[in-house]
Design a protein around this nucleic acid. Structure first.
Lengths: 384, 384
DNA sequence: CCGACCGGTCG
DNA sequence: GCGACCGGTCG
């Protein structure tokens, strides 16, 4: 019959006793310091008498124990980790500079500046305010919005109001960092991993839906394990690769009949994780299906060593990373669409013939063009 | 010529001004509330006059701004994230129970209990104390110990003093959680990812070194990118798989000549990440080399939903996970050695013939046996 | 229930 | 410089 309150109080009492014993203070001595009888200390340590907050602090003071350290030991206050506060944008704080704006971040009480090219303070401030409100709403216990929906909404808003800005910077410096700043319900970094990753898939499917529908193509985010497995089964790949290795499926529609002709793998950033998707992608390509890779290629190095500039991980032609080689040399995907304007696109000719395209979400975006082409080719090949 | 001190102060002034403007308080009004002339406010906001800490708090009070919120906004204090404090063992706090001990953790001020089978309080308390000292030393800025070396030392100590306890629980509930509790120099969770992962590789190589050396086998942790690439080149796999996809190499030695005959992939936990290693492992096996998988298969679900019991991710025979299938069905590794005693080992017969073995670090540990067998078979096959 | 999501770290 | 390391999350 332990209530939460009781359990919390038990920890306090046990730790108070431990501190006293460690400091080799007897119950009698402590009682003397507190101006009380020994029975007072015994009753408190026996859980018979509860301390109010002021009594607790007097108690700790008498033991010469640091209250903050004590609160950490009982898990009420996080361990002090001087380095665990990531760089976060200061609320409403930007400065207009030539060609864009400087986003002012605080990191460990130091000021860090990130330049956002082609961003106007007025637009940024609207974006920050709206996204802040969206994410704060998630902390509300009555909020019915799912985290991935909220983040997807934040992407849509930010890309619409800041169309000229490097999309990967919007992802990484605005939406991601505002989520870290505002989301407090659970561990924000890990929640971002879960919800931010799915939000990218949702965003991609929604952003291109109309453009592709106009060309007889249906794009579908595969959010559940069941949907993923079903899509892989439709492709004839059930059981040959892991069942959960595709993010978005692409269907061509002819007279209400749907033909699955490809899919899109989504990765916010690469790290070593792109190799997860390679076996599924290669299996898709062997089955004559189009396998595309969407990525923000977001990667910056944080302070103190790094400069926070989001250079991505694809490297250059002269000095390619393994990730670039997966596309250009091994041809493990039919194409990679990268939304980090600092990333270096492939040359027209590559070893495998497959290319990295670098785009913004504008009329020159090649992703929908390539999807439409792939469907045309599928129709020709299968005489549809 | 901005010193760190200046940069920090600039943030304070700018944010103080922002708070005043947001609250629609004029400089004159604020000055009145502070019992000062308007020029005082102007000078402070202009950076000409510095506020001492008490003046700062008076200032915030006059603006009816919460000091803690303000300190968070300037990045001096972490955002309050009620859920971001992981379950951490309370210092020196265990209770002896039948068949083992209860490890007492604090999570959000609640008490959480994890049962450690076959652990004795006396031994646990030594382990906790020693590991705490090792990890606290890392916070010392003069510490020359590398994080991975410190964690490896913690593993060696803990497995030696608690030989009967589930090794995965020692990894997950003792070493990992003490690292979270004690390591404060940088973001402890991410530091654990980096250093804890490498420490597992180091530990495996060191733990088995003598036993294997007695059988003419050299085991080597591949810690640098160069070492990994070199080992893959020796195997004849350079360039065919990513260059960084092997953790430990195995050499047989005959008359000072070294023959690479296999390798070990290490994974503290699976998640989806085992598929990273599958392509390299399969390539090794195709080349006639032995490819083994070492894992703690550590996975518990934390509060509030989870019960913290470290059940791993391999599932059962009736309900296998994708990870079990990688071994038992697809045979993507020659064997999987799993050090979580709650994991279900393979039956003697599997579809692929490859098996999951569940072990402790004792005389029945099958890993060294299988490595020695593999080297014998290699010698026979290559007539060495 | 039980899976894949991703980025700070530090060698 | 620049890579792979892993676990809380939440649908």
């Amino acid at each position: 019959m332990t209530t939460i309150y009781d359990s919390r109080y038990v920890i306090i009492v046990e730790q108070l006793k431990r501190v006293r014993v460690e400091k080799k203070v007897t119950q009698r001595t402590l009682a003397g310091l507190l101006g009380q009888q020994q029975s007072y200390v015994a009753k408190v340590e026996g859980g018979e008498r509860r301390l109010d907050i002021l009594e607790l602090f007097d108690w700790l003071k008498a033991l010469r124990a640091d209250p903050l350290i004590f609160l950490r030991e009982i898990g009420w206050v996080a361990q002090e980790r001087p380095g665990n506060i990531p760089a976060l944008p200061l609320p409403g704080h930007v400065e207009e500079v030539h060609g864009g704006l400087n986003l002012i971040m605080a990191w460990q009480g130091e000021k860090k500046i990130v330049f956002l090219q082609d961003a106007k303070p007025h637009d940024y401030l609207i974006v920050e305010k709206e996204i802040t409100a969206i994410f704060q709403e998630l902390n509300n216990h009555k909020s019915k919005t799912m985290n991935r929906e909220a983040i997807c909404k934040a992407f849509q808003l930010a890309f619409e109001l800041l169309p000229a800005v490097n999309p990967s910077d919007v992802y990484h410096h605005i939406v991601y960092r505002l989520y870290l700043r505002e989301y407090t319900k659970t561990n924000a970094e890990q929640s971002w991993v879960r919800a931010g990753g799915e939000a990218v898939e949702l965003f991609v499917a929604r952003h291109y839906a109309d453009r592709l529908a106009a060309n007889g193509i249906e794009i579908k985010a595969l959010l559940s394990r069941g949907e993923k497995a079903a899509a892989l089964a439709e492709m004839g790949l059930a059981g040959t690769v892991g069942d959960s290795k595709l993010d978005i499926s692409l269907y061509g529609v002819i007279e209400r009949k749907r033909y699955i002709f490809g899919g899109i793998h989504c990765k916010a950033s690469f790290a070593e994780r792109v190799s997860d998707d390679v076996p599924c992608s290669e299996a898709m390509m062997r089955s004559g299906l189009t396998s595309l890779l969407f990525t923000f290629d977001a990667k910056s190095f944080p302070p103190p060593a790094g400069d926070l500039i989001n250079r991505g991980e694809l490297g250059t032609h002269e000095n390619p990373s393994d990730k670039r080689r997966y596309i250009e040399e091994h041809g493990s995907f039919d194409a990679c669409f990268c939304y980090n304007l600092r990333s270096v696109p492939s040359k027209k000719k590559t070893t495998s013939g497959k290319r990295i395209y670098v785009c913004k979400f504008d009329e020159d975006d090649v992703l929908p063009q390539k999807v439409i082409e792939a469907w045309q080719q599928y129709k020709v090949k299968h005489k549809l």
